[in-house]
């Protein structure tokens, strides 16, 4: 009936308003829930979420070895041409020619942190770092070479 629906509407509205106001009052009185990071002041103690993505890096171990085979899967996966893999041929001790990377060029200024290259990499050579203070005076400094100079591919990574 119309009138019961009307009364139900009024009480339902009041109840839902009450639920909303209870939640906001909880936040108003519980200051521990505040999530604001006072960034430049708390640079040391700052908490970043686990899945925050800052830039693409290539981890090297202590013998200056990386895991990149130069397969260019990341370059193909990148939607806006951020990564450019420059390959070279190395002569293995057995006398065979083998493909390896010369440079892995990464354009940070083009990167949208979409994570597609990390997913595409078959040998887990690259990952996302949590650094984010990227401002520099010259734009060219944003074009980075990810592999360290003189680095080699790790043994056993094909």
């Amino acid at each position: 009936m119309f009138i019961t629906k009307y009364i139900k509407d009024v009480f339902g509205a009041l109840k839902s308003l009450g639920v909303g106001m209870k939640r906001t009052l909880y936040y108003f009185t519980h200051h521990k829930e505040i999530i604001t990071e006072q960034y430049p002041d708390n640079r040391e103690t700052m908490h970043l979420p686990e899945r925050f993505k800052g830039e693409v890096v290539m981890p090297h171990d202590e013998k200056n070895e990386h895991r990149c085979t130069g397969c260019t899967a990341c370059e193909l996966a990148c939607p806006n041409g951020t990564i450019k893999v420059v390959t070279k041929f190395e002569i293995t001790p057995e006398g065979k020619k083998k493909k390896a990377i010369d440079k892995l060029v990464y354009h940070l200024e083009l990167c949208t942190m979409c994570n597609l290259c990390i997913v595409a990499c078959p040998s887990d050579a690259i990952k996302m770092a949590q650094t984010f203070e990227h401002s520099v005076y010259d734009r060219n400094e944003l074009t980075k070479i990810l592999n360290n100079p003189g680095s080699k591919i790790m043994d056993g990574v094909e």
Binding site: T24, Y27, F28, H31, E33, I34, I35, T36, Q38
Partner: peptide
């Protein structure tokens, strides 16, 4: 301040 605390922020500080 009220709006900040309700929205789990610090507000002017």
């Amino acid at each position: 301040k009220v709006s900040a605390w309700i929205q789990i922020r610090l507000g002017p500080n």
